[in-house]
Simulated scan of single mutants.
Amino acid sequence: MNKTFKLGGDLEINRVGYGAMQLTGKGEFGEVEDRENAKNVLLKAVEFGVNFIDTAEAYGPKYNESLISDALYPYKQNLVIATKGGFLRPEPFVWIPNGNPDHIRENIESSLKRLKTDSIDLWQLHRIDPNVPIEKTIVPILEAYKDGKIKHFGLSEVTVEQIEKIREYLPVVSVQNLYNLGDRRWEDVLDYTIKENIAFIPWYPLASGPNKMAGKLQELSLKYNSTIAQIALSWLLKRGSNILLIPGTKSIQHLEENLKADSVSLTEEDYNLLLEK
């Protein structure tokens, strides 16, 4: 199993990364409760070998990006920080897509400042706004891409048709859709990204689905002397060599466990066992 993936053809990524969304307040809103612990988790993630961290303007909103730069700037060489834009967050648990060009432009410029960088390694459109033509939403993204403020561009929660439409304007190097053992509704998108050598970043990767799956995961965790989470993550790594994992946690212990998922190598038989309904 390959432990790395070359994002956009030039960024060598360790396939088990870290998603920082949990390092916010309740409902992904406001400052994280224990900021020192959050900073320590980020530092430990990099110390343990993570070189891909996923965040977003909407996490907090804004607080998460500032937390990352406070903890990790100046950044370690080859550390890739991916962020996203395109949501309004008026209150906890509320997520409103906003593809207005002025909003997108502000998101990009503000993320650059909060992350203390001149160029974002990977900027992703968090959602396509159904109320704004994508031709308009893409304009400030294309400007930032041409100006070098965005090195690479990705999408989140999109169909194959939407990916192909946006690829008419600029290259798409990653897709971040909901995907895990219990929810595989985006199989066609994953298969498309495999064929096109586009990174697939499953969000909510540790949801295990129906309770009946818990028994299989438990059985395999005993067989491989691993945690259930490691088995679920290992299954994803085997599903596609383009899959980049971003499990999030506020616990250093869970962080360390998650990062060992790439050391678990499932057999074809065990991989298929988890595919069974």
Rank of each mutant, 00 (worst) to 15 (best):
T193W: 04
A207D: 14
W186K: 12
I201F: 09
P202V: 07
G215Y: 09
I198A: 05
Y204T: 15
Y204P: 02
L222D: 15
I198P: 00
N211H: 13
N197M: 08
Y204F: 13
L217R: 00
I194H: 08
Y192W: 11
D188L: 05
Y204M: 07
A207T: 07
L190Q: 01
K212C: 08
L220W: 02
K195E: 13
L222K: 14
W186S: 14
L220N: 00
I194K: 11
T193M: 06
E196K: 14
L206V: 09
I194F: 11
L220H: 04
A199P: 01
L222F: 14
W186P: 03
M213W: 03
W186F: 15
K195L: 09
D191Q: 10
E196D: 07
R185M: 11
K212F: 09
I201D: 04
A214W: 15
A214I: 13
K216I: 08
P210D: 07
E187G: 12
P210I: 10
I198C: 08
A199D: 02
N197D: 15
Y204Q: 11
I194M: 11
Q218A: 13
Y192K: 09
L220V: 12
E219M: 12
L220K: 00
W203Q: 05
Q218T: 15
I194D: 10
I194E: 14
R185G: 09
L222Y: 11
P205V: 00
Y192Q: 09
N211Y: 10
E187H: 05
R184A: 06
A199K: 03
D188T: 10
L217D: 00
G209K: 03
L206A: 03
I201A: 08
Y192P: 04
Q218F: 13
G215Q: 12
I201G: 07
L190W: 01
S208E: 09
K212Q: 10
M213E: 12
K212P: 02
G215N: 11
M213R: 10
I194Q: 08
W203S: 03
R185C: 08
K212Y: 07
D191Y: 06
E219L: 08
A207I: 06
W203M: 06
R185L: 11
L222E: 12
K195P: 07
I194W: 05
N197Q: 13
L222N: 13
L220P: 06
D188M: 10
Y204N: 02
F200G: 01
K212N: 10
W203H: 09
N197I: 01
L220E: 00
K216S: 04
M213Q: 14
I201K: 00
R184Q: 06
P202K: 04
R184I: 00
L220C: 03
L190A: 02
P210F: 02
G215C: 04
I201V: 13
P210G: 05
F200P: 02
L220M: 08
S208Q: 14
E219K: 15
G215V: 12
L190R: 05
L206Q: 12
F200S: 02
A214V: 10
G215M: 07
L206T: 13
